[in-house]
């Protein structure tokens, strides 16, 4: 049966490269019809306006004169942009390795739990469903100067810390991000882990490999494609941490958690469209380059993306 299906699909592919029959024409027409509404919407709502953004980033706000890279230079020299870019990069570079390591570690632990595995998986996933707005009040209660965490710190005989209004706010944000995203990443790790053939582990056991060796030489290499995926998804999610930052601290938070989104919002209020256009393109380009570089060095094969 398997063979038959294979033969079937192969023949289908072979025919595709041969002459275009009426059947193929019909199929290709159907494909475009199915795609048309989505493509039209994306063109109208994203591609054309984004083209406009690219154009505007090279023009002056008033009079519409060509400005070359003047807007870009303004943005790069802007102190708020430098701060926001620095904080966002620092956040990403801190959180993503932490998240990947912690969620992998917990996944391996959860894999080992036969009976309670599902309970743990659900528990780690739940924060994904909890609206940021609901959790903010709790974070206030826990991390405030007079909050529960400080109470515990006091009881253990240490000096309390003002978590929210000092540079420590960064760590509150890191914690929020880990709290929310560990479950998501764990599901992906678990999917990756279950894709590794058990026979490999058995063979290694016979050869006398210990738990660490097995992890190092079987699990880690087997998870490489998953790791790249997880990196990209965690990167996407890291930009959403603005929600916590904004809800905890408002439009002008402590300097350590002033993120790109804060900057965009503040420029937005003053309708600094030119600056925003240039900054949007800078962020997009840097992000894509970052992903491509990581992809190159993580040894992911061509068909993985």
């Amino acid at each position: 049966m398997q063979e038959l299906i294979k033969k079937f699909t192969y023949e289908g592919k072979g025919a595709m490269t041969r002459k275009k029959t009426t059947m193929q024409k019909r199929e290709s027409r159907a494909a475009w019809l199915f795609l048309a509404p989505s493509l039209a919407g994306i063109t109208l709502f994203i591609l054309i306006p984004f083209g406009d953004v690219v154009r505007r980033s090279f023009y002056e706000a008033m009079g519409g004169k060509f400005a070359g890279v003047a807007n870009y230079i303004t943005v790069f020299n802007n102190g708020a942009f430098q701060l926001a870019a620095k904080n966002t990069s620092r956040f990403i570079l801190t959180c993503i390795p932490l998240l990947l390591a912690i969620s992998l570690f917990l996944s391996v632990l959860v894999m080992g739990q036969r009976k309670l595995g599902d309970f743990f998986k659900s528990s780690f996933l739940i924060p994904m469903a909890v609206p940021v707005a609901s959790i903010v009040l709790l974070w206030d209660i826990i991390f405030d100067k007079n909050g529960l965490l400080n109470r515990m710190i006091l009881m253990s005989g240490h000096q309390p810390v003002d978590w929210m209004n000092t540079s420590k706010a960064f760590y509150v944000l890191v914690f929020s991000y880990l709290w929310k995203n560990t479950g998501y990443d764990m599901v992906l790790w678990l999917a990756g882990l279950s894709g590794i053939a058990p026979a490999l582990y058995e063979a290694a056991s016979i050869d006398g490999a210990g738990a660490w060796k097995k992890f190092r030489y079987i699990t880690l290499p087997g998870l490489l494609p998953t790791a790249f995926t997880l990196f990209v998804l965690s990167l996407i999610n890291s930009f959403k941490v603005f929600r916590e930052a904004y809800l905890i601290a408002g439009s002008y938070p402590d300097n350590s958690i002033y993120m790109l989104q804060h900057l965009f919002n503040n420029w937005f209020v003053t309708l600094d469209i030119q600056k925003m256009c240039a900054a949007a393109i800078i962020v997009a380009v840097i992000l894509l380059l970052f992903i491509l570089i990581v992809r190159r060095y993580s040894g992911v094969r061509e068909e993985d993306l």
């Binding site: 406009d52 949007a280 992000l287």
Partner: peptide
């Protein structure tokens, strides 16, 4: 489509606003 999916709101907000 993948690239559009990856782009954070910061990148698309200006263009969304304009349209």
């Amino acid at each position: 489509y993948i690239v559009l999916m990856i782009m954070p709101f910061q990148v698309t907000m200006v263009s969304s606003y304009l349209v």
